[in-house]
Nucleic acid binder design. Structure first.
Lengths: 340, 340
DNA sequence: CTATTTTATTAAAATGTTTTAATATAGATA
DNA sequence: TATCTATATTAAAACATTTTAATAAAATAG
């Protein structure tokens, strides 16, 4: 059986309070003699405090709940990994919840994490097909008296702290780059357009088109999901509309396009240009290396942890969302049409 | 302020015990009237039990600690993701600890998880450069009175439950396949050979060589780490020894080799054959798709969860390690030399 | 009508810690 | 010597629940 603080107290011939004071370096005067006795008792019994009991009384768990769509996606994997590393030095621990983009699971995890009294929550997606679901989640979040930080894909008008990347700018940057290299028929391989992320990226896409005096054509928008599979399906469909380039709404989709290009004997970028979003660390390894819009994962993670810890430390703080900028990573998957 | 069980009791005009009985469906007789009153009070106050208090008294936390080298590595990402999905249905939660292969961090997490009284621990690496570190960890694990399951890279003679993949067989399979296609000078790109994983894979490699009447040549063994970077460094070194094929000790290393091959203008598999280990889901996307030895991640995850839950349910159980088999995935990165 | 059993409910202990307020002891001051 | 202060220590409450043992009330049996 694990020793308790009472065991230590008895062994050292003092009260539990004294043991607690010593172990927590409380500013109370303790004689050198008893301190010594207690410390040796602790060692002898191999005493380690039960964190559950501590949490119950101090009302802090040193735990952060991280809710994300899919920890298997390298983008989110990096995000949570980076946070965990930052938090480890503070002796804080990370609980992970994968939602698969499902609002029901999202709410379940919000509830579970709240019930477990985590000190803070990082939420990486609050953006569902069904607007109503989003509202339900926000309602739940308001009821939970725990600091929640909202990360990456942030919804406008959200009343929580957020570390956002401008999703519209992502679409704009990608499209403008393709346009500047002479592409005019640009297909989009997107996840569901009812998700704000995708709608915003698409909006950026049309903005860039307008700048070049072009109208968007809904036939060039293929919607499915932000997965490899989507890319596989998108390729034949978009090829049927004679696109010279495809804007894949994330790198996973781009991978699917790469994969499918093999089956169609198409060479990237000669026969087709591709640009992605996220800059997953594999994108550099593809043949050709994928040109992509990078989201600053580490910065997001750092900011999220920083703000969250501040929020935990002093509960009342003014609300000011952080906006981070995406950046274009030029590699080898886009052809310069104006050159040939 | 969150309502407590006392608030509910007061609201319903009963004792906290009664509320507890009702909420937990305890086999005690409760009149329909009070049950109703309690349930409406619960609803009115939006009462949710504090899991910390429950954990303290029931001595279970519904939490599993997962300790792994790097959650950013898709192999481990899949492992933990799969476990989390399985556990979610049981209302259990996963805490993640990334060790980066560091024994000190490993021990720290073992300690933290133990202090937090997780119900069980899954440990994915107990295999360090320094033998002494491994012993220290095992000592710690013995002291912790929590079920620990040992996963993937298992050390022989380990006195814990384990779900192992035969690492020697991995090396044997990979090498034999290369040999069968006519390769004779086969380089190894490995992590530190002082780690049992790598030593075992290398042992399998030499076993296969011997079967073909060949001796292993230490010049053909390049050691660094199980990362992309290792592959980059390994390539020029091994090319200097005229290898026709490289056995990369995991897919990440293989990716590094792919990357570096571009700089050397080498075409895989024409100029160089490569085989990896893990079958990360990106391996299929590379050009050419990577031939690799697959470890059955999902099976490992399933078994781990299954055994762990059993172990948690009834503490005394006989020890019988599970062994799973690696399988060869033939794709396009190995050339058949005997054909040409 | 009393004794016994069944049904419904609760008081209180237990979980393992922190923290506040109280107390005892020793030393200093007047 | 009596009073005050500083030092060292502890008792007990608090955290939010579960659970055991006790009790009260009602129903049944004899």
């Amino acid at each position: 059986m694990r020793a308790t603080i009472k065991d230590v107290a008895k062994e050292a011939g003092v009260s539990p309070a004294t043991v607690s004071f010593i172990l927590n370096n409380k500013p109370v005067s303790i004689s050198e003699a008893t301190r010594e006795r207690v410390l040796t008792a602790v060692k002898k019994l191999q005493y380690r405090p039960n964190q559950l009991a501590i949490s119950l009384v101090t009302n802090t768990t040193n735990t952060i709940g991280v809710i994300l769509p899919d920890s298997t996606n390298p983008f989110f994997a990096s995000l949570s990994h980076h946070m965990e590393e930052k938090l480890r030095s503070k002796n804080m621990t990370v609980i992970i919840g994968n939602t698969n983009g499902d609002p029901v699971i999202t709410r379940k995890y919000l509830q579970i994490f709240s019930d477990r009294r985590v000190d803070g929550i990082v939420l990486a997606q609050l953006d569902f097909e069904d607007e109503e679901e989003t509202v339900k989640c926000q309602e739940l979040m308001r009821n939970i008296d725990i600091p929640i930080i909202y990360v990456d894909r942030v919804i406008e008008g959200c009343d929580h702290y957020s570390i956002a990347v401008d999703q519209t700018k992502i679409g704009y940057l990608a499209t403008k780059y393709l346009l500047s290299l002479g592409h005019r028929r640009i297909g989009c391989a997107s996840g569901s357009i009812r998700l704000k992320v995708n709608a915003n990226r698409y909006h950026g896409y049309t903005m860039a088109l307008h700048e070049f005096g072009l109208e968007s054509d809904s036939a060039l928008l293929f919607c499915d999901s932000l997965s490899i599979d989507c890319g596989c399906k998108a390729l034949p469909c978009l090829l049927g509309h004679n696109v010279s380039a495809i804007f894949a709404f994330n790198d996973m989709i781009a991978y699917g396009i790469y994969k499918e290009c093999k089956n169609y004997n198409l060479i990237i970028p000669n026969d087709l240009s591709v640009i992605g979003v996220d800059d997953i660390y594999f994108s550099d390894l593809l043949q050709p290396p994928l040109t992509t819009i990078s989201q600053p994962v580490n910065e997001i993670a750092d900011e999220a942890v920083k703000v969250l810890l501040e929020l935990i430390a002093n509960t009342s703080k003014s609300f000011s969302p952080v906006k981070l900028n995406p950046v274009l990573k030029v590699r080898g998957s886009v052809k310069n049409l104006s050159e040939s």
